[in-house]
Simulated scan of single mutants.
Amino acid sequence: MLPGHGRYDYRPWRGRPAYEWPGGTRLAVYVGLNLEHFAFGQGLGAELAPGANGGGGPQPDVLNHAWRDYGNRVGAWRMLDLLDELSLPATVLLNSAMYGHAPQLVAAHRARGDEIAGHGRTNSERQSTLDEAAEAALIAEATAAIAAAEGAPPRGWLSPWIAESLVTPDLLAEAGYRYTLNWCADDQPIWMRTRAGRLLAIPYPQEVNDIPAIVARKDGAERFARMIVADFEERLRQVARDGQPQVMGIALHPYLVGQPYRLRALRGALERIAAERDTVWITTAGAILDHVLALPEGMVP
């Protein structure tokens, strides 16, 4: 037997119970907007040019740090304008360090009623490298910061760099979380087992995601926008054909898609989705959780 995680059973796509999203729709679409802050001169971070200073030199890596900070200073505000223009909600995946670094930006999302989900303290660190007590402390610190600022603790979590230890789902459930975005194993929400009860895994994309597309594969702005539209239109075809509900997430980082030429391409893709708001459910991850919780037992694998 191969080692396994034991968090969920294999359930083939065919033969699952079919259910609907609100309004009789079968496709739920949400924007996962990552608001991240990075340490200067140390720690992890996406790179515009590989290696510190573009050539493997020593820290401080001014080029890549400043490029990422552009997202919070400029790109994220342009993303807010675009979301307002198209009347799109967002699930904000928030490093709690953002409260100290860019509180006005978090306040702007609060004002428009966006969901705030936990995304660690900073994307300069991975929780998977910590022992259990230190990881629990990280989750508790980030959760407390969001609860203090937003008036309620977050219900969902995305680990920085999607990094988990063997006990991360257990620690999340024990900290009061109801869903995780870490596991990209399905096109529907699925229940995971933890030592503190069930935790819902809501699909979060690793394909329709600007980090692997733009940073890793070096896809251009138009190609990434076409990817979003192709994913959306194929899903529309599938749900009409087989009746199975699906979740489509769109993962975005303002230091990438907030660049003007990428924003222009992204606008066209999101306009295509917004035009179907009467036939799809444009929502948040938290609202998906609420809908799943209201379904009859056994509908969700």
Rank of each mutant, 00 (worst) to 15 (best):
P3L: 11
R11L: 11
R11T: 12
R16H: 02
G32R: 05
H37R: 07
G43F: 03
G51P: 00
G56W: 09
D61R: 04
N64V: 04
H65Y: 14
N72S: 11
N72L: 13
V74E: 13
G75F: 03
R78G: 03
L82I: 04
S87A: 14
V92N: 01
V92L: 11
N95P: 02
M98S: 06
H101D: 12
H109C: 07
R110G: 03
G118K: 00
R126F: 14
A134Y: 04
A137L: 10
I146L: 08
A149R: 15
A152M: 07
G156Q: 08
I162T: 10
L166R: 11
A173S: 15
A175K: 07
L181C: 12
D187Q: 11
R198M: 04
L199S: 03
A201V: 02
V208T: 15
V215L: 14
R223S: 15
F224H: 08
M227T: 14
E233C: 08
Q238Y: 05
A240K: 07
D242N: 15
G243H: 06
A251K: 00
L252N: 02
G258V: 04
Q259D: 00
Y261W: 13
E271V: 15
A275H: 09
D278F: 01
D278N: 10
W281P: 04
A285V: 10
I288S: 11
L295M: 06
L295W: 02
P296M: 09
